[in-house]
Computed example of a mutant assay.
Amino acid sequence: MNFENLDVWKRSARLSADIYKATAELRDFGFRDQLTRSGLSVPSNIAEGMSRDSSKEKRRFLDIARSSLSEARTQIYIGIDICYIQKDLGVKWLAETRELHAMLNSLKKTLV
């Protein structure tokens, strides 16, 4: 299965790029770095996992991607609270992380 054809990979890569663009001017480098890293980890782990041979390894990397989504979601909540992320944009990103999480769960179930 080619990861580049997966909607979950495409959408998570788009979210990661959106996070990078939206936080490019943020001067809190620690926060920005943590958020961009967790966002970047999602499509990266999907790609790495789906390139593995065994279903067990694929599922493990999808679990890592889900964990990174949870990390990013936490940082988005905090970013909204401390006014680093505009509320409407943050709410959009939060909804996307929830949908991506569900998509990863579904994909994981197909790997027997």
Rank of each mutant, 00 (worst) to 15 (best):
R98N: 10
S68G: 08
E48G: 00
K58E: 08
K87D: 11
D7S: 10
R32G: 00
K87G: 00
S67G: 11
R98Y: 14
W93N: 03
L69H: 12
T97V: 05
V8R: 04
N105E: 04
Y84D: 03
L6K: 13
S68K: 04
S38I: 15
A102P: 00
L26Y: 03
E71R: 09
R52L: 01
Y84S: 00
Q86A: 06
A24M: 07
T97C: 05
K21W: 02
S106W: 03
N45G: 06
S16N: 09
R27L: 05
F3P: 09
E99N: 03
I76Q: 06
R11F: 11
L6D: 07
Y20T: 04
G39I: 15
R66W: 05
L35N: 02
E48M: 08
L26P: 00
S54M: 03
G90E: 12
S16K: 03
A95D: 10
Q86K: 13
D81R: 14
R11A: 07
I19Y: 01
K21Y: 12
S68C: 05
I85K: 04
Q34R: 10
R59Q: 12
G30S: 06
R37H: 11
Q75T: 12
E4Y: 13
G30I: 15
G39W: 15
D63P: 00
A17K: 12
E4P: 03
N105C: 05
E96V: 04
S106K: 07
Q86Y: 06
K92H: 12
K87Y: 09
R32T: 12
A17Q: 06
K87P: 09
V42H: 13
C83R: 12
L94K: 02
E99P: 00
I76H: 14
V91S: 02
L104Y: 03
E25Q: 06
D18Y: 04
S51Q: 05
F61Y: 10
R59D: 02
R37V: 13
L62F: 02
T110K: 07
R37D: 15
I19L: 04
T97Q: 08
R59E: 13
L6H: 03
K21A: 08
R14L: 10
S16T: 05
D7R: 10
A13F: 13
K58H: 00
D28R: 03
L94M: 08
S44W: 15
K58R: 05
F61H: 04
T97F: 08
A22I: 12
I85C: 09
F3W: 15
W9Y: 01
R32P: 02
R66Q: 07
S41Q: 14
I64F: 02
E71H: 05
L104D: 10
T74A: 09
S51R: 08
N45S: 11
G39C: 13
A13R: 09
F61P: 01
R27C: 00
I46Q: 01
C83N: 13
R60T: 13
I80M: 08
T110R: 06
K87T: 14
R27K: 08
I64M: 02
E57I: 08
T23Y: 01
F61L: 13
